[in-house]
Each structure stands twice: as structure tokens, then as C-alpha cells.
């Protein structure tokens, strides 16, 4: 269980986090979303004890990360946004060194390392130097490192960045496995479709403030159904007609009718009466992306 309580963080005069509070319960996957520079990484770095908050605290399984750092650290795994390790160390050697901090003897750590490397898909590269690792390999290595102490809380910062499709699928499986085992998982991501697939709840941050927290069900109900319509031409007349049946949004080469008060076949009929030829019409799935822009948009 991760509890973030009223955290403030300043960088000089700039307030990067403003009274940030939310929690990640056991057996729950929480997505953390926001624009670039919103404060996701800063929150996560504070929660894992790498950065000190100016106000507030973070509790990991009830242990304060600022006052009981060691106890709290035992229960948390972290994949940094940019995993950086000793560049000149060989991956497995470095893993063994890190495991030493958790009191795991070298022989056991080596065996465990090989096992975890195999699991995350870098088994072949165990004896390579970390500076020879690709970005995705570093992420995989960081995943293995985050599991050293078998913690019950995980914080993943943009873990999907740089992973290949197979890596993404692997991560999805892993996160669900953690969830089944009753662990708490927080992950930040810009890939909203993945957040939508995986998260039980989504925390929205904007300019250092938490602006919304919603369960996936709430998001699905908030995202209104829409019709995506493609016609031979898009002009003011078309927008005006559609406007009678709901909110209209023109995006790319299609027009969206949000929350339509008319079904598709009647709409096609209406439009052709007015001289518009409908080339394509379909219902679109409500998406996190839409809710995201709505929530963020309200802040602007």
C-alpha cells in the first residue's frame, strides 16, 4: 500500500508539486497521467525516497519514507524514467552488488539474478556491461532490479517507453500478476490506451496538482458515446445540421457527434436529404484519451 500525503515540492522558487495526495491500495493498479512536466516523475521520486519532499510524506506499508527510510525502502520496487546504473559494471555483477543491500548473499543473488534476467528477457546479456545495453534492455534490467527484494509495492515511471511490443505485453502480464498477488502498482504513462487496458484507477495530475482521480468504470461512463462520420464534404452546413443532434467536433477528416440523440440510420437519411453523402459512419469506443483531454482542458 502506497499512501502519498499532502506532498509539496519546490525546485528553487518553482512549485513542482502542490499538495499531492492519493493512494495505491494492495491488489490495485493505478495509472498516473498528465502532460509533460506535470509532476509525475517528481512524485514517484519522492515516493521511493530519492527526493525529499518540502512538505508532506509518503507511507509505504505504513512506513514513512522520510522518517523510516530503510524500512520503507525494503517494501518498494522502482523502475526509473531513465534507468541509469553503473555504466562500466556487468549487469549480473551489478545486480549481485545491489542485492547485497538487501542482505542477500552473493551466491544466492547470482542465482536469483539469472532467474530474473531470464524472466524479463535479458538472460543472454547477463554478462554484458550495462553501457552496452539498449534503452529497452535497461528498462528490462531495471524491472529485474525492482524485483530483487520481492516487494509488495511497485512504482513504474514510463516503463513502457522503449519497450518493444513483446516487452509491453510482458509488462502487462507482470502488472496483472502483481495485482493478483495483492501488490500495489503505480505506473505513469503517456500511452493512454495501455493505461486504459491495465489500470483500475487513474490519477490525473496537472501543473503539480492532482485534478482528478477516477476508477476505470467512472471513466467509461464519463466518456460519452460518439458517432464518427465521414462525408463527401465537411462544411458549416453539415456542422449546423449535426449540431441539432449533439455536440459536434471536427477532427482530422472526420466529424464526431458526441452523445448523439439520433441513431445512425436516421442520421444517414437526414444527411442525404440535405445533399451530403455519408461514406462511413461508426460508433466509437469511449476512451481515456477523450476524458483526459476533457479533464485537462477544463484546467486550461
Amino acid at each position: 500500500m502506497i499512501v502519498i500525503e499532502n506532498v509539496d515540492k519546490y525546485f528553487g522558487k518553482f512549485k513542482a508539486l502542490d499538495n499531492v495526495s492519493f493512494e495505491v491500495r494492495n491488489g490495485e493498479i493505478v495509472g498516473y497521467v498528465g502532460l509533460n512536466g506535470a509532476g509525475k516523475t517528481t512524485t514517484i521520486r519522492i515516493a521511493v525516497g530519492v527526493l525529499y519532499p518540502d512538505k508532506g510524506d509518503v507511507l509505504i506499508n505504513g512506513y514513512s519514507i522520510t522518517r523510516e527510510k530503510r524500512k520503507a525502502s525494503y517494501h518498494v520496487g522502482w523502475v526509473p524514467e531513465l534507468p541509469i546504473f553503473e555504466p562500466d559494471a556487468k549487469a549480473l555483477d551489478y545486480f549481485v552488488y545491489l542485492a547485497g543491500y538487501y542482505g542477500i548473499p552473493a551466491g544466492e543473488a547470482r542465482r536469483m539474478g539469472r532467474e530474473l534476467f531470464e524472466k524479463v528477457g535479458i538472460g543472454e546479456a547477463a554478462d554484458k556491461k550495462l553501457k552496452q545495453y539498449s534503452q529497452g534492455m535497461k528498462k528490462r534490467f531495471a524491472l529485474a532490479v525492482s524485483m530483487i527484494n520481492n516487494p509488495d509495492n511497485f512504482l513504474f515511471d514510463e516503463v513502457l517507453n522503449g519497450l518493444d511490443p513483446e516487452g509491453i505485453a510482458f509488462f502487462r502480464k507482470l502488472a496483472l500478476e502483481f495485482k493478483r498477488e495483492g501488490r500495489a502498482v503505480l505506473f505513469s504513462s503517456h500511452i493512454l490506451s495501455e493505461v486504459e487496458n491495465l489500470a483500475d484507477r487513474v490519477v490525473f495530475i496537472h501543473k503539480g496538482r492532482i485534478i482528478a482521480v477516477h476508477t476505470m468504470e467512472e471513466i467509461k461512463s464519463m466518456a460519452k458515446p460518439a458517432l464518427r462520420i465521414k462525408t463527401d464534404r465537411v462544411d458549416e452546413g453539415l456542422v449546423k445540421i449535426l449540431g441539432e443532434y449533439g455536440e459536434v467536433r471536427v477532427k482530422d477528416d472526420a466529424v464526431y457527434l458526441i452523445n448523439p440523440s439520433i441513431d445512425s440510420s436516421s442520421l444517414i437519411e437526414k444527411l442525404s436529404q440535405k445533399g451530403y453523402r455519408v461514406e462511413e459512419i461508426n460508433r466509437v469506443r469511449p476512451s481515456l484519451e477523450e476524458v483526459f483531454f476533457k479533464i485537462i482542458g477544463e484546467q486550461k
Binding site: 521520486r45 521511493v48 525502502s73 526509473p80 531513465l82 538487501y102
Partner: peptide
């Protein structure tokens, strides 16, 4: 940047 990893550990 490896100091981050050091500070993250239970030390």
C-alpha cells in the same frame, strides 16, 4: 545518475 539507485536502496 547512479546515485539515484544508491539513494533508493534501503540505506
Amino acid at each position: 545518475g547512479s546515485i539515484n539507485q544508491l539513494l533508493f536502496l534501503p540505506v
